[in-house]
Amino acid sequence: MRTDAVCDVFLVGVGGQGLLTIGELLAETAVALGIPVHFYPYKGMAQRGGLVKAQLRLGRETVGPNIPPNGADVVIAMEVSEALRAVRMLRPGGEFLLFGERWLPTAVLLGKAPYPATEAVLERVAAAGGRPVYIPPDTLPADARGPLPANIFVLGAAMGHTHLGEVIPVAAVEEAIRQRWPRAPERNLAAFRAGVMGIRNELHELHEFYYSDNS
């Protein structure tokens, strides 16, 4: 654990995915650990389906809300097309975690606009000097009630597969999850742990390719 470490995290996705909850949990964890933190969410205007992004800056006592271009140490992206917006934010050598969910805009659904291939997104990340970590959406575990919360799964994946896990301990995030849902943390904890642990063995070949190439 490196509580003195500075880490800038850029999050991107669409409304309804629970992306901001990831940032809030990390911010709450940081406060509990006494790590300086600044969390700046951007919700846009949409309740659901619009662009959502957030900036989490860990480890600096005095820090401005915005991460500069080429400045993010870690990107967490939950939507394939919107992930492209985060490439400009990634530091060369930074880690780019992409959960491969696709939320198709209406124009794409109608065949009037193109939608980027996941491979193209990962290629652009690599071209920008980033280290892609790809999580296929079908690796999201399910239980009898249906798929586990994807955002908490992605949070787990970020903790387990980027250096965020060295800045903030996994156990502290679990504690923040328990604090947030004190009555029924089980499904969220299951999703989180699956994200931390379960991915490496179930990785899509794309991820195998980039991960082995860059790490």
Binding site: V14, G49, G50, L51, P69, N70, S81, E82, L84, R85, V87, R88, M89, L104, P105, A107, V108, A113, P114, Y115, P116, A120, V121, R124, V125, A127, A128
Partner: peptide, 12 residues
């Protein structure tokens, strides 16, 4: 920043 990624974003 490199801007060759964001030009591929599907308008939303």
């Amino acid at each position: 920043p490199r801007t060759d990624a964001e030009i591929l974003v599907a308008p939303r």
